[in-house]
Design a protein around this nucleic acid. Structure first.
Lengths: 227, 227
DNA sequence: TATGTTCCTGACCAGCCAGTCAGTTACCAG
DNA sequence: CTGGTAACTGACTGGCTGGTCAGGAACATA
């Protein structure tokens, strides 16, 4: 009898601290796989190893769960990047490259990369979520590039480009790569090398920002920062 | 009595031939507005001025309706552009500008602009349809830019850029504008002027493609085509 | 006017899912 | 060992929507 009691394990454990993170992780996977409205909370709970009721102990609603996923996965990283950019003192060309590649490595190439498509798809149907994402991710993320480009212009490294548009244009190819990866690429056999694509993008972007004076009429090319 | 009979109109008419087109048009609007799964067939039918039952006289299912909408809406415009590009003989810079602005005017700024977002959202759920769209629209559309950029390189107007990536990078900001318009812009008070954005994009793109020799060491700038 | 056929209606059904809550179990303090 | 309570469960509900179908209205034909 005592041996039997040993074999029988508890059906569940109390793990108050671990649950929210596990639920958010499960939710991220399923949201990215299936989209927001197509994701069933039963499935999220099951993947996290709990019942749906437990999910509601830690999150008020499906939207609340989604916000938690965004905050944990993306907003925190943007805050880190904002901090790094403040303490950065090298050439701006290198900063731009760093922003692009870090973005890709930390978000775009991971499961988090699917969030962009997700938000774009569902923005119209969930205005509150869209506003949250817009304010916390889009504006701040674009702000990183705006800051960098402005710094380059002020430091005399870049030509003057309109700050209202240039950050969007600079972000667009990276965003497209993320969107592609989570839509057409799934059914596109001819996959592209992301690294080479980003190389081409940063190359073209830095060319677009280059000072004409770098090749100015006196025939002495001003050296560009190469990193 | 006869005057009364004249006032009373029939509650509905038999218009067998017109129904499918009207239903597809209504479906396009609603799919673009709300996405596929969020669109209620009751609403589609109502917007087309019929009842839901009638919809099922002409389409087997919601998915069937979706396919009909896509197939009907995306047909001839790319072929037209391919034809125009073949007969074009001016400077390539002007060709690029024309591609960008025509794209925007004829598709991006219209309801058709919403189809890009729609396809991107639903690609995962309709692999067959995604493949069709990818082959007929994405590849051919990107091909327009590949052709133009290659022509510019061959003609000595542009520097050498990787043809595998440059067209995607050139398209990305326009695509993003289309996607934006149908997602975040709906909840973003600070609207952007599309024309000015496209101006900034073509400007940066043509800078990125510019020959270094345009400002070469002899101090004589090669004149660029301005259109 | 009468009759048949085609086109259309809208109430209805079946199934799905976010969110609830009364009850159950693990764990702990005394 | 024995309550006490916090963590957890899972059956349930209420609302919603894709899809159906029996019947009704327009029109054609004579």
């Amino acid at each position: 009898m005592s041996s039997l009691a040993k074999i029988i394990e508890p059906r569940w454990e109390r793990r108050k601290d671990a649950r929210p993170g596990e639920l958010a992780a499960a939710a991220l996977e399923l949201f990215v796989e299936r989209g927001f409205s197509a994701t069933r909370l039963d499935d999220v709970a099951r993947r996290a190893g709990v019942s749906k009721g437990t999910l509601y102990l830690y999150f008020d609603s499906k939207e609340d769960l989604f916000k938690a996923v965004i905050r944990e996965g993306i907003v925190s990283r943007i805050a880190e990047a904002e901090e790094r950019i403040r303490n950065y003192h090298g050439p701006t060309t290198a900063l731009i490259r760093e922003l692009v590649y870090d973005w890709w490595d930390q978000i775009g190439s991971t499961k988090l990369g699917g969030i962009a498509k997700l938000m774009m798809s569902e923005a119209g149907n969930f205005p509150e979520l869209a506003k949250f994402y817009h304010d916390e991710v889009v504006v701040r993320g674009m702000g990183l590039f705006a800051t960098a480009i402005q710094r380059g212009i002020v430091a005399g490294e870049f030509r003057k480009v309109p700050l209202e548009f240039a950050p969007r244009i600079a972000c667009a190819p990276v965003l497209m790569l993320m969107l592609w990866r989570n839509s057409f690429d799934l059914c596109d056999t001819h996959q592209m090398d992301p690294r080479a694509y980003l190389d081409a993008h940063t190359d073209m972007l830095l060319h677009a920002l280059e000072l004409p004076e770098a090749f100015s009429a006196n025939g002495k090319a001003v050296p560009r920062n190469k990193t």
